[in-house]
Structures are given as C-alpha cells and as structure tokens.
Amino acid sequence: MSEEKQQVSRRQFLNYTLTGVGGFMAAGLLAPMLRMAIDPVLQPPSEGEFVNVGLAVEDITTTPQRVDWKIKQVDGWYESEPGRTAWVYKDDNGDIIALSPICTHLGCVVSWEGSEDHPNQFFCPCHDGRYTKDGVNVKGTPPLAPLPTFEQKVENGMLYLGKAIPRKGA
C-alpha cells in the first residue's frame, strides 16, 4: 500500500495529533487562569441593601433634615464604610421623601435653605444652583436635572434607605 492512497497520511496524522495535544496543553493551562480572570463578571449583581439610617419615622417632619449614615461596602478583600447623606422630609401626602444632596451640576453638596436669599429651596454654594423642595431644579440655575431620590422602606418605625436613583432631567 503506497502512502498516496491513504486517506490520512502518517505526516497528516502526526500534525493533527500535535495540534490536538497542543490544544489540550493550552486549554489545561489557560482554563483556570481565564476562569479566575473573569470571576468578577460572573458574580451576581449586588442588591441595593437597605440600611437603617437611625431616624424614626415619627421624627420626620415636613421640613427637610439632614441624615448621615454609613453603608458597608465590600470590595473583594477590602471592607470599608463610606458615608452617605440624604435630606429627608414628609410631603403633603405624608409620604417620606429622601433626596440625595449631590448637585446634578458638578457634584457639589447642596443643603436645605443653604442661602438666606432663597428660603424653602435647596441651595448649592458652588455655582448658586437651586432646587425646589421636591428636588426639582429651578430653571435658570446651573443644574439640569432634579436631585436623585433614595430607595426607601420603613421597618419597625425606623427609616431604611437603599440606592440613590437618578431622575430624568426637566
């Protein structure tokens, strides 16, 4: 039997086998490495955890008050407790509103009645940005979007806040 008549020549067979063994070695080497590298991608998305901000619902008035609390943040092996701030009040219907104080213009920190010239408004000292009580930006001032609101729930008479949800620009 001559070599030409064979479907797969000896040389071809060896080439295929070489490719196969090489592929096996590469896969065996790289599989654990790649799985390790993409691990963060496969982690389930973190749930916005609600944190007790230490404010009883009955203490919430119709005047916005500043609330500071800390959230637990786990970044791999690094645990930290970054602070969060909100302005909390009850609106006319008795619903609790929790506004993020981060100005939507350039991210400065706004405060309730921060300027004596503008009562009943949130005021940003950086560029005189203003928001009405419900967090909507006043037209003609720098910000282009309302203040974000926090996700919230009430348990045992205490206020729990979650993630800040941005609102669409007005």
Partner: peptide, 8 residues
Amino acid sequence: DPTNASYI
C-alpha cells in the same frame, strides 16, 4: 477619595 463628589 471616592467620597469627593465635586471632583471634575
């Protein structure tokens, strides 16, 4: 400082 919200 990740909490520095005003950094441009």
